[in-house]
Design a binder for these strands. Structure first.
Lengths: 337, 337
DNA sequence: CTGCATATTGAAAAGCTTTTCAACCTTTGC
DNA sequence: GCAAAGGTTGAAAAGCTTTTCAATATGCAG
């Protein structure tokens, strides 16, 4: 049986108020009693019960985190950033996998709400009307990490996808490439779809490159196998391209895998630029040139922002835009225009 | 202000006991009142408070998980398995990063204990006497995932590292290799050090291959950069080896990276076998032949085991050994003996 | 019609802590 | 020597729910 504050009080021969004070405001208790209490605590191996504490303070020092897939390098780096910020601030994270399953997601939200989390972070997945209806009934604040909600006023932390894609394409163009393909998320994916496609096409256009989206873009889900097939299709319809913009590192790796297997050298024959700069990018061959997102920071800043909202502190920008950059490694080569 | 059970009771004009029953044993309440209560719940958007519930039941349906680094593919796949099993059983996971920092670890354990977790899972890190002293004072059960404690009686779920390393070496030998190097964890690492070194050497010995550990083994921490250096050192002292056994996929990738950069072809000139079979193994070039650990299952089974311990059900084996296997891809080639 | 069993409900205690308020004691200042 | 101030402590309420126990009402048998 676990010792409670009453047991400590009894053993130390004081009231439970005094024990509580020894724990929370020791200077209010005279040394003699304080030491007796401390001794009793040690003897009973007493540990305060955070449930009771949370009941009174209406705070649990716990945040909820929803992620479509925690075993994904992208998310796990973001999660690591969250965990870091949370730990520094004395919070814990309840991390849940949604598997992109709306039903599971709503079930989890219900439980997290019952468990009285102080705030919630949603990663990636867009916020649908269904979701918003649930979220808006919660009394705790919500932050979106690496995603945003164009339709609703929800705090978020992410890169500027349109600009990042523009920069990726512009980078390839600056290296002399003119025939550039793209492996993208589906057109209505608000992260690695729409915005990045627009940025990509805008860059081509700005640099006077005519392009037919039907020919140079292949759409698909992010999994390696699907992306491999996408690269196959892209190569079939656009065989003379000299560079590919893949909208995630996993897609880039899949593209490279396809090319390697068909004896097309990367980057000598086809350059590949990725997106995300997950740790994998520096570990594969050839090492990936990629658009870096500050994944750890996105997680870290989401928690910082969430804590401000929890404390009721002013948050200057509802939508935080974090900087991207291009990390040059070995998968892109310059060609003569 | 959040509605409480009293508010619902007042609005529905019944006692709080009745509201509680509607939620937990609806068949005990006559239909008329039940519907009034349900209507009040909906109107007030009432959600029960799990803290109060936990206080009474002395159960929180929450498990603690400590991991040295949640952004590591290895751990994140194990974590995904845990999350899956936990979700199915109606539990949540509080996941914490220890950064291999003993002080941080103990601080976290203190908080998790206060938060009344029902059980704890420790991944990887060995259990030191210091740790054991802390753990043994907890009233909830503990399971080790992908690690074990030779010195203490703690439940665990992991592969047989000695045997797995033996099999890896035997596999290389069966492909005709005789001059085999190894990139290992430090000798006193109870996971990717000692046992795997012993298994490796035993296999060489069993197959009549003389070997000098000083020459054929290079020790080091698991990070890519360190492993890269280890490969460099190994190649310098053992230039005519035809195969390398790397004790993690990350180490294998670092080795391959070194070899690529020095124009040594993999697997044509040197074969490389990895360990873990993280998702990366199938995404790099060449695709990695590796000793597969059932990472997801290790996580899943740890939670299943932990739940049995929590429920006081019998657990037949204190130390669960899960099967490993060799996944053949493209990084190992047969040579003429 | 009485008595007993059963169905339904509510009051109150328990679970553990923090916090407010009041009480008591000791100083200090005049 | 007494009033006021300050230091220390304990009792009790509050936070929200579940559960036990008792009470009331209903139905049925004899």
């Amino acid at each position: 049986m676990k010792a409670s504050i009453r047991d400590v009080a009894k053993l130390a021969n004081v009231s439970i108020s005094t024990v509580s004070r020894v724990l929370n405001a020791p200077e209010l208790v005279v040394k003699e009693k304080r030491e007796k209490v401390l001794a009793a605590i040690a003897q009973l191996n007493y540990s305060p019960n955070a449930l009771a504490r949370g009941l009174i303070h209406r705070r649990t020092q716990t945040l909820g985190v929803l992620s479509p897939n925690i075993s994904n390098l992208f998310y796990s780096e973001v999660l690591a950033g969250m965990e870091g910020a949370a730990h520094e601030a004395g919070y814990n994270l309840m991390i849940c996998n949604t598997d992109n399953n709306a039903q599971k997601k709503h079930a989890i939200l219900k439980v997290l709400n019952e468990k009285q989390i102080d705030g919630l972070i949603l990663t990636s997945e867009p916020v649908l009307p269904d979701d918003y209806e649930v979220l808006s009934k919660f009394t705790f604040p919500v932050v979106l990490a690496a995603t945003h909600s164009p339709d609703y006023e929800i705090a978020s932390v992410k890169v500027d996808d349109e600009k990042a894609a523009y920069d990726a394409a512009a980078y390839l163009i600056s290296r002399g490439h003119r025939r550039i393909g793209m492996i993208s998320g589906s057109i209505d994916d608000p992260i690695s779809g729409g915005p990045r496609i627009r940025g990509f096409l805008r860059a081509l256009n700005d640099h006077g490159i005519e392009s037919d989206p039907k020919k140079c873009i292949e759409y698909g889900s992010p999994q390696f196998e699907h992306s491999y097939q996408a690269m196959k299709a892209l190569h079939a319809k656009f065989p003379d391209m000299t560079a590919v913009f893949a909208t995630s590192d996993e897609r880039a790796l899949a593209a490279i895998s396809y090319l390697h297997e068909h004896r097309i050298r990367v980057p000598e024959e086809i350059s590949v630029i990725g997106f995300d700069n997950t740790r994998m990018a520096g570990m594969c061959f050839p090492k990936l040139t990629t658009v870096a997102q500050p994944l750890f920071d996105i997680g870290y800043l989401s928690v910082v922002k969430l804590l401000r909202l929890i404390r009721g502190e002013p948050v200057h920008d509802l939508r935080t835009v974090v900087p991207h950059s291009i990390v040059e490694r070995d998968s892109v080569i310059s060609v003569k225009p």
